[in-house]
Computed example of a mutant assay.
Amino acid sequence: METNRSSPPVRLRSLDALRGFDMLWIIGLDTLFRALAHTTNHPALVWWGKQMHHVSWDGLRAYDLIFPIFVFVSGVAIPYALKNKQDRGISRKKLTIQTFKRVAILILLGLLYNGLLDFKGDQTRFASVLGTIGIAYGTAALVFLFTRSFRARCLWTGGILLAVAALQLLVPVPGHGAGQFTPDGIINAWIDQQWLPGHLYGGSFDPEGWLCAFSAGFLALLGCLCGEQLRNRAVPQFKSVIQLLLGGGLLISLGALCWHLGYPPIKAAWTSSFNLLAGGIAMILLGIFHLGIDFKPRPDWSLPLQIVGMNPLTIYLICRIVPMASVSGFFFGGVGRLSSTWEPVVLALGILVVEFILLVFLYRKRIFLRI
């Protein structure tokens, strides 16, 4: 892991902006809208405030899409990062080693994020968000490095989707049978109970368990395919936007069909139906961001999002280590008290302001945390 003070290479601005947009919901925009919903009781804000909570099990809300979109975005970056290194003459062997190193570091950071240094023994949670991102990224990166054609990578992507569906639909779970979509009966739970040590976040399963991480590889590979198509075009083309929008619409339709036929979207189990819906929405968002940003010669409106999106790991870890609510209270507590019933909104907005000022400082100093 290194801190890079040099100017970053030429980047797909829409990718950084979409990553930044996604990160904002993780680092405080969700809390702001929950506070707005509670304070105003406006029907539209109340509805969106409800969207800022995960579904209890099956179904889909906007909050369920934040993590998969980030995995998708990490995949979009793969052709840009790895192909650029290949063009500079870096061998596949070295890139493979770097990939495994990055996966290992993300798993370790995930353990630290989960409280590894608390030394809780069997109560330590080994599965993590960062670990899942690492495994999904590693899967997509290795497929990209060791396959010769775009078609082969498409087959790998579809293969993961079908393999997960086959496991969840057809393989009998001891004591429950096959095709059971309950927290205890789904095969994810059995796999985690057998082979995932430590504390399981969901009790009988872990939403970032082994099968979930493998399933997330579909989204990383889907992003990789999209990134490869975008990178292969020297200048932005409307054809790319149409492909992303139509492809996303097709995946959403397939996901809705699976749901209708009894294979529900379950984010906590990363069902293939969930991957289809999340992947389709991610493709459409990428198409919209690509059209609204990359076809213009300058960053324009998207620069604040890019600033957030260029340091996602930094702000994610800082928010875990630093009590941002206390920092916001220190600077904005007085204003909040004077705002009476709007105090939760002021303090939630204060968290975002503090975080953004920090990210702007890092951006101006050209400090970017890389793995």
Rank of each mutant, 00 (worst) to 15 (best):
P174F: 01
G177Q: 02
G177Y: 00
G179K: 06
Q180G: 06
F181L: 01
D184Y: 10
G185R: 14
I186P: 03
I186D: 05
I187C: 02
I187Y: 02
A189I: 03
W190Q: 08
W190A: 14
I191C: 02
D192E: 08
W195S: 05
L196H: 03
L196A: 04
P197F: 08
G198Q: 06
G198N: 05
H199S: 14
Y201A: 06
Y201Q: 02
G203N: 14
G203A: 02
G203F: 01
F205M: 00
D206P: 12
P207Y: 02
E208K: 05
G209Y: 04
W210K: 09
L211S: 05
L211N: 07
C212R: 03
A213R: 12
A216L: 09
L219F: 14
L219T: 00
L219G: 02
A220C: 07
A220P: 02
A220Y: 04
L221H: 06
L222N: 05
C224P: 02
L225W: 14
C226Y: 15
C226A: 14
G227W: 15
G227R: 13
E228N: 09
E228I: 04
Q229A: 07
L230E: 10
R231H: 09
A234N: 15
V235R: 15
Q237T: 09
Q237N: 09
Q237P: 10
Q237S: 10
F238V: 08
S240R: 13
Q243T: 12
L245Q: 10
L245S: 07
G247I: 11
L251A: 12
L251F: 12
L254E: 11
L254G: 10
